[in-house]
Simulated scan of single mutants.
Amino acid sequence: MTTTNRWPLSLSDDAARVHAEYRSCLAIRHTRGIGPRTWKGLLDHYGSACAAVEHVQAWKDEGLATLAQMQAFERETWKNEAACEETQVCQAGMSYVLYTQGAYPERLREIPDPPILLYTLGDIAVLGRPCLAVVGSRQCTSYARRMAARLCSDIARAGLTLVSGFAQGVDRIAHETGCREHGSTIAVLGTGLDIVYPASNRDIWEPVASSGLIVSEFPPKTLPEAKHFPYRNRIISGLSLGVLVVQAAAKSGSLITARCAMEQNREVFAVPGPVGSGYEGCHELIQSGAKLVQEYDDILEELAPLLQGIGQDPRPAPSREEPWESAWPDASLDEQQRQVVCCLKKHGKLHIDALTQLLGWESNKVSQTLVMLEVLGRLEQHPGKLYSLLP
């Protein structure tokens, strides 16, 4: 089987063409018997949903679908549900990102069963940033709250976006922290975007949408049914470099997210707790190979190789006027790390915003470089987002 296109496919900015692709995505998704793994194969092979629809009679011969699936599409078993969803979305004025668009997050596209589209509320640029999922108990202990708040704060200040499921407890702490700190946050829902669930989180809905992003694969008016949340969980882990579980009982829903992460070849981290007090799930994960986490350095130690190279665009050779003009005599550091070190060497302790201005980089790039230098033991972070070199 040959693949006609590779990602990301660049669709025209023409709204009519994008809408036609959206309608084709809906038709495929609502065809009885076709699930995420099948539609991923179809779209990867043909390069777009429109092209897949045009070649429906070849699906079986190409080994992309069964005869029953192909016939179900040709019988238009999808027509009523797709039309209903399209009408609801148009009436609500919802935005979306399609699997075949460049804005669709590459990490999510890599999983075996990705959503064919995401409805979005907020800044879709957040989808392209390095993310870490943080999940845990809805009714967490005071210990878990303290650990979640401290770890989320450190992770977000390091420039990572916090992803969670908009539940009470640990999820809420992750979203609140992401809104306050540099890293931002993504809330993944198990309902439509027109439903705030749980209602007790209504007060953080607008802050999350304003400073981060809320996403769902479900259409408007989708209620919070138990069957939806495992689907949501695969997106939480799929968007992320890894999943941190702060508190989880033996049959916690957080373990579903952790297992999704393992299946997706993501890193899994767990915070241990007292024996017999609602942390059995975390202990089970640690026994199964998850990284035991006490400090955020435990997380960054594992993510360091993944963070290197994310968002690292080539930079022109620095001019003599730039603050890092003298070479840093350490071949173990890359060019960006040497530039940050030389900047701190010249100016002493600096706030992250001052570093960003002096270097002329995007803030995410500065944060990621600082994370790596901290992991390498070359600098230390002080309260108030100040940084200095270690002796």
Rank of each mutant, 00 (worst) to 15 (best):
S153H: 12
W59I: 11
H55Q: 15
S142Y: 00
C131E: 00
V126M: 06
E86Y: 05
Y119A: 08
E110C: 10
W78I: 10
S137T: 14
Q101G: 08
L118N: 12
H55Y: 03
T100Q: 09
W59K: 10
C90K: 13
L64V: 11
G93I: 08
A125Y: 00
A72Y: 01
E106L: 09
P105S: 10
C90E: 14
S95D: 15
L162E: 06
A72K: 04
A103I: 10
Q57H: 12
E62G: 02
R157Q: 15
V56K: 08
S164P: 07
A82G: 05
K60G: 02
F73S: 08
V163L: 05
N80M: 07
R129T: 14
W78P: 03
C131Y: 00
L117Q: 11
T141D: 08
G165K: 01
M94H: 13
A158N: 10
G136C: 07
Y143G: 11
L121E: 14
S137V: 04
D113L: 03
T161Y: 01
I111V: 15
V126S: 03
A68F: 00
R75P: 00
M70C: 14
L160C: 09
I155M: 11
A82D: 01
E76I: 02
G122W: 01
R75Q: 15
G93P: 07
T66H: 08
R138H: 09
G128A: 10
G93W: 06
I116A: 12
R138E: 05
E76Y: 02
A103P: 00
S153D: 12
V97Y: 04
